[in-house]
């Protein structure tokens, strides 16, 4: 059951531009570009949260760092995507390395709060960058230039670039999860003491996983800045990190495609509710509470149960 739904959804994502062209509905393409980018971010969070057991509540920081790398370079006259994207990834990886090394000294609820606090620090630093717009954010006047290879201003091409990045990252996660490295990380989630006793340097494995995840999310950030032509501290605000966590849980933590389903459902729900009422959060909030109380294993878990039963 879950396989059929996943396949259906992926086919839908691939064929979406076709539908958009035929029906002339441009809005849906813009909406889904955002969904695909945030699905990428959610998938990266799932790598550490679902497979690694590291509950990061500051993942939106990478969205901002990746985005600011693109925006700042564009502002300084470096428009080439071949420079912007590697810088965005490197900046995210460096941040993840520092934050991870500090945060991984703690565990459990401390880890949740520490990652949250560091992301909030990144938020305040971005708000203090007077040269790059400060609180108001930074407009990206020109999208990343890949010298004719791909045109990011073309909606369809940009959508497929984002989708390719998403599939690439999910493929990478699949390879990581099934590799020796991934098995060690998952073993650490189950029983850190035992893994350490067998002789694995726990922190080093977890840190490596943390950095990989952060780098992937930095890619999402760079894409997001190109999508909105704008980057502001608001993308790093802690509620954004919360949104990403919700997407992962909603879809099914620790499953390969769960975060994608979660992102699609969550963002479509948000869109749908906000069209019904201005006060959509009034419904969304209690809905989250109900999902936590009654929806174990997210949508993927539900589909699995339906398939078996």
């Amino acid at each position: 059951m879950s396989k059929a739904v996943t396949a259906l959804m992926l086919a839908g994502l691939v064929l979406l531009p076709l539908y958009s062209h035929l029906s002339g509905n441009i809005f849906i393409l813009t909406l889904f570009t955002r969904i695909v980018i945030l699905a990428l971010a959610a998938a990266s969070l799932n790598l550490i949260m679902g497979f690694g057991g590291m509950m990061s509540f500051g993942h939106a920081a990478y969205l901002g760092i990746g985005g600011y790398a693109v925006g700042m370079l564009a502002q300084e006259g470096v428009g080439s995507g071949f420079i912007q994207f590697p810088v965005a990834l490197a900046a995210s990886a460096t941040y993840a390395l520092v934050i991870g090394a500090l945060s991984l000294r703690t565990r459990g609820v401390y880890f949740i709060m520490i990652t949250l606090a560091f992301a909030q620090m990144a938020y305040y630093v971005a708000s203090g960058l007077a040269r790059y717009g400060g609180d108001d954010g930074l407009t990206v006047y020109k999208r990343s230039d890949f010298s004719g290879l791909i045109d990011l201003s073309n909606r369809t091409q940009f959508y497929y670039l984002c989708l390719a990045c998403l599939f690439g990252v999910i493929f990478l996660i699949w390879r990581i999860v099934n590799s020796r490295f991934g098995l060690v990380v998952q073993g650490l989630r189950s029983n850190e003491q035992r893994m350490q006793a067998i002789g694995f340097p726990a922190k080093r494995y977890q840190l490596a996983c943390f950095v990989i995840s952060g780098t992937m999310c930095g890619l999402a950030g760079a894409l997001l800045a190109n999508n909105t032509d704008f980057v502001s501290p608001a993308v790093m605000y802690w509620t954004r990190s919360g949104d990403l966590m919700v997407m992962v849980i909603l879809g099914g933590m620790g499953t390969l495609f769960g975060p994608v389903i979660g992102a699609v459902v969550y963002l479509l729900l948000e869109e749908f509710l906000s069209q019904i009422t201005e006060y959509w959060a009034l419904i969304m909030g209690p809905l989250l509470l109900l999902i936590v109380l009654f929806g174990r294993g997210g949508i993927m878990g539900l589909l699995g149960r339906v398939g078996r039963g």
Binding site: M49, M55, F57, G108, V109, I112, T239, G242, M245, V246, I249, M284, G285, P286, L287, L288, L289, I291, V292, L293
Partner: peptide, 12 residues
Amino acid sequence: HLDHVLATFGLI
């Protein structure tokens, strides 16, 4: 704890 975070996030 993750359940707490999500549920109370919904409350916010």
